[in-house]
Design a protein around this nucleic acid. Sequence first.
DNA 1: GCGACAG
DNA 2: ATCTTGTCGC
Length: 225
Amino acid sequence: MTALQMPADAAEARAVQDALRARVVLDEPGPPPGTGLVTGVDVAYDDERDVVAAAAVVLDAATLEVVAEATAVGRVTFPYVPGLLAFREIPTVLAALESLPGDPGLVVCDGYGRAHPRRFGLASHLGVLTGLPVIGVAKNPFTFTCEPPGPRRGDQSPLLDAGEEVGRAVRTRDGTKPVYVSVGHRTGLDNAVAHTLRLARDFRQPETTRRADALCRRALREATA
DNA sequence: GCGACAG
DNA sequence: ATCTTGTCGC
């Protein structure tokens, strides 16, 4: 496990990303969808008090039942800067992941992996630091472009950065806005999309994200109260 | 120079 | 991310 480097400013943060990018593994397919464990991670903030809470929720990939969960609370140590989200979220997310009783399996996080100005978004960063397979599922296209996917669940279209496919817009529910999937670490894009569709069985967002979102909000509320 | 911009 | 009521729809 590589330690997180906390840069002093944005320029240093970009340098860290450029240095770590070479460690991303893109030639592994990743765990087969529907088997083993999948872990959702998410973070909630109280900007008034500078408090951040993270949650990691482990699901059985076949049944989507919760099998373990952990939370961590910390101080905000980096501002939100587009392209540098990882430095704001990762310290507390790592603490939550390390509190889990066992192996997390595939990690699913909010935001992007390869779909990033320097090809090193949150999902890539988290993957390199932990060594785990990680994918990113975001709720909007960031700075990238794509044709709208077809209207039905499972329809998808490439997410493009100057003509290069950096992710996929995926319709997880008929007639609802797509989600944006990209690879973080040790996972292929087609497999990441397959995982996303299995996890988004009942709602637009993956069940991992929904569970982690609810848990980190609760942890923040309890830490702040 | 200006606007846009994961969470 | 977060601030926030009611409201439309399955």
